[in-house]
């Protein structure tokens, strides 16, 4: 009872919402057959590519698969610390 009261008063998200968002993520991975390793590789390759244009810190790069209703999205959070060159390198 006391625990329940504390939870009701605290600002933590409702545990059912935590359950739902965890489940959505788990199922994206289950359904796509995407594993940790693949996500890691994707993160490394994305960082490599973007490093040609921007100064990045690999440790700050976050890549995640998220599910919204019926679609899935690749969401990346990539802080930029500066430009490498004024223009993209011409090959």
């Amino acid at each position: 009872m006391f625990q329940r009261l504390m939870r009701a008063l605290s600002r933590e998200p409702k545990s059912k919402n935590v359950a739902k968002s965890r489940l959505k993520l788990i199922l994206v991975q289950d359904r796509l057959g995407v594993d940790e390793e693949l996500m890691k590789t994707l993160q490394v390759e994305l960082t490599d590519l973007l490093s040609r244009y921007f100064e990045l810190k690999p440790d700050y790069v976050e890549v995640d698969l998220l599910r919204e209703a019926d679609s899935m999205a690749l969401v990346a959070n990539i802080p930029i610390f500066g430009m490498k060159t004024r223009r993209p390198v011409q090959v």
């Binding site: 329940r4 939870r7 009701a8 409702k14 545990s15 059912k16 919402n17 359950a19």
Partner: peptide
């Protein structure tokens, strides 16, 4: 469910 501690 009402307390928000179980998925409905």
């Amino acid at each position: 469910v009402k307390a928000g501690d179980m998925m409905n």
